[in-house]
């Protein structure tokens, strides 16, 4: 049921963002702290086995928010550890997220070279 996938992606993804919004509005955490918090919480929830069910239910709704980045890191590290032991614990997380990080560096650099920031009205 593809349409249900989109429904859950919307609902869960939106709900995770609402948690972030509540933190910003009520505790005045800066976006930088929110991002750090979310990625770390994602790793921890994954380690506790609590995030996997959310990914199965919501797909991109759980992987696109930054907690999903944490999920990919945590899952990668755990799988690495199971397969290759201590070395895998070190390499697993970065291996699993290499695509996103490399893309961020490349596209980040290219955009910076091409575009110039504009004043806000």
């Amino acid at each position: 049921m593809e349409w249900m996938d989109f429904f859950w992606a919307f609902v869960i993804g939106g709900a995770i963002c609402v948690v972030g919004q509540l933190l910003i509005s009520l505790t005045r955490l800066t976006p930088a702290r929110i991002l750090v918090l979310f990625v770390t919480v994602g790793v921890v929830l994954t380690a506790l086995g609590l995030y996997e069910p959310l990914v199965e239910l919501a797909g991109a709704g759980a992987t696109v928010p930054l907690t999903g980045f944490g999920y990919a890191l945590g899952k990668g590290a755990m799988e690495g550890a199971m397969e290759k032991g201590i070395l895998g614990a070190f390499t697993g997380g970065i291996t699993a997220t290499a695509g996103g990080v490399a893309a961020a560096i490349l596209f980040g650099y290219l955009n910076a070279v091409i575009f110039t920031p504009k004043t806000k009205k």
Binding site: C17, P65, T116
Partner: peptide, 19 residues
């Protein structure tokens, strides 16, 4: 937070200071 929390916001946090 709707645009901060998704990974697109992570990209934004990289590109904006880089620019």
């Amino acid at each position: 937070a709707g645009s901060v929390v998704p990974i697109t916001g992570f990209a934004n946090s990289i590109v904006s200071p880089a620019m």
